[in-house]
Each structure stands twice: as structure tokens, then as C-alpha cells.
């Protein structure tokens, strides 16, 4: 059974249909890059997977849990998929370590000492083991994003959704974040990333999804998608015309 099963998903904002019937199955351990022009629906698709947007048609199931609007089910689902945002969205009033601890203690009811141990371990994993007590405002963008990754990992999700996680970073800080993601991929974490980093998509991903006008326009292993794009839209997107 696939970890994430997306079937004929439709989503509209008002009159505008943003997703026009998306089908996509993702196996455990896969690393998926979703690429496409802005407005193609790639971020919306990602946000639908963990219920930040409610879908208007079709179905999404994560590890057998169907994504619906129901609160208890949403909670169960969100324990299975973590999300990392373009703007980091760290909690500014809490230290890096507390950011990573909060949902563990509140949502999973993990005892404080245990949550602290996990937080230290996760911060260590993203190379910030020595910044437990730093406030977000004291960290660089790259460091903040790594804390956000640690925060998501601490919940032990089955998959991570990454929504353009390097787009808000200064160029010199992109590499440190991508390196962390690359390491996660190598360790077998299921990743779905909306990205503009084509080199990253080429080197790290098992499959690349090209979205165009609310549909999966082309899909395949990176060699095929980047090496031999079949459609003119993808060729144009890749600047190959």
C-alpha cells in the first residue's frame, strides 16, 4: 500500500479551480520533487495533503488515514506528516529547543525530560545541538529553517512536506538547509518537496512531478524529466527551447 494515495483531487478557490484532478501515489521512502510555474497548484497540493486546505473533490489518504475536515482525524493525520514552510514559522517567543519540545509535550503528551532529550537529539541532527537556548531572532534564516526541520522531525512523522523551504533564504544559506534534507533522504525519510532547486531535484529525488495548470503534466525519474522532457510545456519550463 502506498504511504500517500492522492486520487482525483480537486480544489477551487472561489471560481478558480487550482487543482483539476490530481492522481499521485507515493511509496514509503520516496523523495518527490514537485516543480512547476507559480500558480500551477504545487503548493496548494502540498497544503491539501496535511489538511491546511480542504479539498473539494477526490480523496487523499496518508497511511490509510483519509484527509477530511474532521478535527480528530486531522490531528491523527498531522502526526503522520510534518510540514516545513517557506517562512520557517518558528514560534518567536520560544527558544529553539522549546520550539522543538512544544508539540511533543502538548500533542503527544511526552514527558518533559523525554521531550527535551528528543529535542536535543533532533537539533543535533540538523547541526544545531549547541543552540538549544537561542531565540529564533538570534538565529540566521538557514538556522531557523533547520530548527523548523528538527521541530517537524521530533514528532516522528512518516513523511515530510517541504513547501519551498529555501525560497526565503539568502543564497549562501540555501546549501546548509538542502544538506540536511539530503541527509534525511539518504536515511530513508519520505519527502515531498515543492522546490525551485533543480539541481537538488535532479540529484536527490526518486521522482519528479511537473505540474502545469492544476494537473500533473509529466512525471518520472529525474533522468527522464530533466534529460528527455516529453511535453513542450516542460521543455519551456526547463528553458530548453
Amino acid at each position: 500500500m502506498s504511504l500517500i494515495a492522492i486520487t482525483d483531487v480537486r480544489k477551487s478557490f472561489g471560481q478558480t479551480e487550482v487543482l483539476k484532478g490530481i492522481d499521485l501515489d507515493i511509496e514509503p521512502g520516496e523523495v518527490i520533487a514537485i516543480i512547476g510555474k507559480s500558480g500551477s497548484g504545487k503548493s496548494t497540493l502540498l497544503r491539501c495533503i496535511n489538511g491546511l486546505e480542504t479539498i473539494n473533490g477526490g480523496s487523499i489518504a496518508v497511511a490509510g488515514v483519509h484527509v477530511s475536515g474532521e478535527d480528530r482525524q486531522l490531528r491523527e493525520l498531522r502526526l503522520k506528516v510534518g510540514m516545513i514552510f517557506q517562512q520557517f514559522n518558528l514560534f518567536p517567543h520560544l527558544s529553539a529547543g522549546r520550539n522543538v519540545m512544544l508539540a511533543q509535550t502538548v500533542v503527544k503528551k511526552t514527558p518533559k525530560e523525554e521531550a527535551r532529550r528528543i529535542a536535543e537529539e533532533m537539533l543535533d541532527r540538523v547541526g544545531l545541538g549547541n543552540r538549544f537556548d537561542a531565540l529564533p531572532e538570534e538565529l540566521s534564516g538557514g538556522q531557523q529553517q533547520r530548527v523548523a526541520i528538527a521541530r517537524a522531525l521530533a514528532m516522528k512523522p512518516a513523511a515530510l512536506l517541504c513547501d519551498e523551504i529555501t525560497s526565503a533564504l539568502d543564497p549562501e544559506l540555501v546549501a546548509e538547509v538542502l544538506q540536511v534534507v539530503r541527509k534525511l533522504a539518504e536515511e530513508g525519510m519520505t519527502l515531498i518537496t515543492v522546490t525551485h532547486e533543480m539541481n537538488f531535484a535532479r540529484e536527490v529525488c526518486s521522482r519528479v512531478v511537473f505540474m502545469h495548470l492544476g494537473k500533473v503534466h509529466e512525471i518520472g525519474p529525474p533522468e527522464a524529466v530533466f534529460g528527455a522532457p516529453k511535453t513542450p510545456e516542460l521543455r519551456q519550463f526547463l528553458g530548453m527551447q
Binding site: N50, L52, D71, R75, R78, L79, G82, M83, F85, Q87, N89, L90, F91, L102, A103, V106, V107, K108, A148, R151, A152, M155
Partner: peptide, 12 residues
């Protein structure tokens, strides 16, 4: 983003 981040961590 604060609402979204906390929601994505499963908070009610």
C-alpha cells in the same frame, strides 16, 4: 504562519 505551523504539528 503561526497558526499553520502549530496546526501542522497537530495542535488543536
Amino acid at each position: 504562519g503561526q497558526w499553520e505551523a502549530s496546526a501542522s504539528l497537530g495542535m488543536s
